[in-house]
Design a protein around this nucleic acid. Structure first.
Lengths: 247, 247
DNA sequence: CGTAGATTTGAACGTCCTCAAGTCGAGTGG
DNA sequence: CCACTCGACTTGAGGACGTTCAAATCTACG
């Protein structure tokens, strides 16, 4: 084997090239041409970082140095109140950014925890600002991603503020299927990476309520549950639950 | 009167200069030097727009053309679900940005409604992207503001997902006092610009619950309520409610 | 193969919602 | 100037949904 190739394959934390990544069409480099992508490969995203299941990528209070793009695995982010209550603010999968919360204060404001053995691409923020200053389309895509994060948060607020347990879980599952589908996975066969308690925390429900609601969905023929395996058999029915239609 | 001054005072929607604005220390131009501020004045923020009470600045589905900075007055932003339920996602006052939700999809995703006769500074987005590409500190401040919006959303999610009615209202009031204080207003004498129903929508409560909770706060000596006039007499007590301390 | 953690399910309870009636204040017209 | 009306707010009573507490079951991992 060519010595250089060997070396490239064994760089610390793995060799990183956005240009060859299967997620390049949904991640930060969307809209970049070949030359710009080369710049990103050479100057920006040069390190990947492994995070074992259950470990923190960073936690609230840590100095903000970089943004992270999920490459493999799954994460959750959570905020805590002074008296210890925890709220999961999001679940991140491949191609999604983590750490945007830290830009404003230069400190991370949430904990980011790997839900399974995962890897993230490290995007040092200082270099990112410099490069996005040179590459217009990089800046644009970054703004788009931040904006979508805000819109996603609005959706969660709508869910938490005005929906019943069944609607919340339906929304959660449909969101999950959509994201899995854009990544080329089956939209009906879901393997949950998070516990009932974590789903509950995200949806503003207790774990028992999540469990009961899953059972009710199964009893109503919407899906099959077996622990963390979900088989959605009636996505339209789930959608109707959300839309408030009487079917 | 000097003709030019006369003209300046009567430009369409008023003459706009960030450099002379009383909100320049909390709004978009934070961190800009004199020369950069001049650029913003001349090339970016040249138009103000009046929005009468109850009117929409934009609504969900509208083409996204510009970001807006509140100059005078108050706004609310809301999302709606298909079946008509409405969720207020935020209340904006002077120096805060509206419209960040539209960047991702080039369509606004929320309605923005003036709670009283208001004026906004119009920031055309195409020009903004160009100028922030030239002025580093403008880009940085914009990222900071977007990031803070995300963090604020996380706070609302924590509130909606895990707090009781009293804690929600306490958090709402304390947030309001803090923002009023940074704008030089009294942190104890609040005039609410929004109805009980709008507060309820923001906090995920019904208007009756908001009303009852105000009454309970008054009975407990935390504040005086008289319609939309609030006099906070025990901010520490409100803070304790939030922190879950047994006082 | 055993133990700890995750999940399911049941029963009683509590917070907030729903429905309803009544109060208050601002704006309007007689 | 006062009566009228409409919308916003307050307050009460009963009910619903989700929570809390508890126990049983299951599985995954060492």
């Amino acid at each position: 084997m060519d010595q250089r190739v060997f070396k490239a394959l064994h760089l610390p934390h793995g060799a990183v090239v956005c240009s060859g990544c299967h997620l390049r069409d949904i991640c930060l480099p969307v809209g970049l041409n070949k030359a710009e992508l080369d710049q990103v490969d050479q100057r920006l995203v040069t390190v990947r970082h492994k995070v074992p299941r259950g470990e923190k990528l960073f936690q609230a209070g840590d100095r903000f140095e970089a943004i992270y793009a999920v490459w493999t695995g799954y994460f959750k982010t959570c905020v805590s109140s002074k008296d210890g209550r925890e709220q999961v603010t999001g679940f991140q999968m491949g191609g999604e950014l983590i750490g945007l919360d830290g830009i404003g204060t230069r400190r991370h404001e949430v904990d980011a925890v790997a839900l399974e053995d995962s890897q993230v691409c490290v995007i040092p923020y200082t270099e990112f600002e410099a490069l996005s200053h040179e590459i217009n389309s990089l800046q644009q895509q970054f703004h788009r991603m931040m904006s979508r994060e805000i819109v996603r948060n609005h959706g969660v607020m709508l869910l938490l503020g005005s929906m019943h347990a069944e609607e919340r879980l339906a929304a959660f599952l449909l969101n999950l299927t959509k994201r899995l589908q854009t990544r080329g996975f089956s939209p009906s066969a879901i393997v949950l990476r998070m516990s009932r308690e974590e789903i509950g925390s995200y949806l503003g429900l207790k774990l028992e309520t999540v469990s009961r609601t899953f059972s009710r969905f199964q009893a109503n023929g919407l899906l099959f549950v077996r622990h963390r395996q979900i088989q959605v058999t009636d996505p339209v029915g789930l959608q109707h639950l959300l839309d408030g239609e009487t079917v």
